[in-house]
Design a protein around this nucleic acid. Structure first.
Lengths: 235, 235
DNA sequence: CAGTGGTCTAGACCACGCA
DNA sequence: GCGTGGTCTAGACCACTGT
């Protein structure tokens, strides 16, 4: 009669997913309780739980205690982006990586940074500007502010040799981050640093990290023309 | 003596994570077997398994059967991007969404699309160009190819009223996708469609989906100046 | 072949959040 | 309060993969 008994959590996941896609469950609909699904499919509740966890992570359903499981009203396409350390990224392509520190000084955070970091008032932080190069050609220009309250050790790091990012990634865990991607036309200063024409279209990656409520760092990375961010998923 | 006994999988995860961050376990190091960690921390193996799953998803460690668990050599920053349906995105901001179909015709795929979709040879597909508007102003211009072999039903959809994306997201599940983000300077055609100056810096989102080995669609969405993609995570 | 992670089960208790 | 998802446990077996 019915197909083979669903056993693995991936089977269960696919089974439910198919029902969502074929309209058995429509956006906003409530799904049966995990326990009922488990009984229907002949598996343990924890297997259904594992499947649901995946569907929830993938943005297919939303789960709430007491509220039950609902098909998400807004289907979203969820993509996972890996943002590697620039040095690794360059080296992985077989190119030679180099790095040039353009500026390093303590300064009051301008208003834009106060907003980005959700500070209550301007404060003194370490302002770093640096250029990453691939085969001696400009690759990414980064403009960074590091909180000397949250990460005072950064003051002892030799930033003329190692990028702040590399030190931070290895030594400062963060509990929350914020990523922002957009395009800009190169302004005079950026054009000079990256050796591109003024007005060139450049991809910008802005990244801010916090540990708890304490800001760690915010960085605006301006990439060179042709730079692409890739994400792949599935199968 | 020692701190409170680690109980929840998040505690276990944070415990291991801290050891990676403080250098107890260095990049490339092998971690103890799940069972040993479980015994050390006084919890069940499945709790360690759950914690490890999270660390693995986050790109902190790599796990292999028989090979054990190792700290990843390349720390990566992993971000999850949600790409909503454009209509929802516009409406969520309280703006009025509208949509204009600029072109819809069957055509042979050009070489670039053959490459993107990993086809063995050019074939006839549905080529759609459309403009999404927010409060009657251009918002995103999309150039899309849809496989009529994989999704023949698309030919019966009234694309002058609904965007192909919306129909596809709701009706064509995909098993694999590919995402590409970059910046371009607006060329003449795009500048006219989006009502921006030629050469303006625009963020492009390219997305391709497959079901198994069959290509479903590939779309190049050119956004208007100021458009940002956001990702947040943590806490 | 053997070691390690991956999954399943059955049952228990917890915690959130709606009524 | 009480229903539902979230987590934990102890044990069993499976499935990769390195040796």
């Amino acid at each position: 009669m019915s197909g083979p008994i669903r056993r693995s959590w991936k089977d269960v996941r696919d089974h439910i997913h198919r029902r969502v896609l074929d309209g058995t469950y429509r956006p906003g609909d409530k799904l049966p309780r995990d326990e009922d699904i488990a009984e229907t499919l002949g598996c343990a509740r924890s297997t259904v739980q594992r499947a649901m966890q995946d569907l929830s992570d993938a943005g297919i359903v939303e789960r709430k205690r007491k509220g039950g499981t609902h098909v998400r009203v807004d289907p979203v396409s969820r993509a996972t982006l890996d943002i590697p350390i620039t040095r690794r990224e360059v080296e992985a392509r077989g190119a030679t990586y180099s790095y040039h520190l353009a500026q390093r000084r303590l300064a009051q955070t301008p208003r834009s940074i106060v907003t980005t970091l959700a500070l209550s008032a301007p404060e003194e932080m370490l302002h770093v500007q640096a250029l990453h190069l691939s085969d001696r050609r400009p690759y990414i220009y980064e403009d960074r502010w590091v909180s000397t309250r949250t990460a005072p050790e950064i003051l002892d790091v030799d930033l003329s040799r190692f990028s702040a990012n590399e030190w931070l990634v290895r030594n400062k865990p963060y509990s929350r981050y914020d990523l922002r991607l957009y395009a800009i036309a190169a302004e005079a200063a950026e054009a000079v640093q990256l050796d591109v024409e003024q007005g060139a279209a450049l991809l910008v990656i802005e990244r801010t990290t916090w540990i708890g409520d304490l800001p760690i760092t915010t960085v605006r990375s301006v990439t060179t023309p042709g730079y692409q961010l890739l994400a792949q998923n599935g199968e």
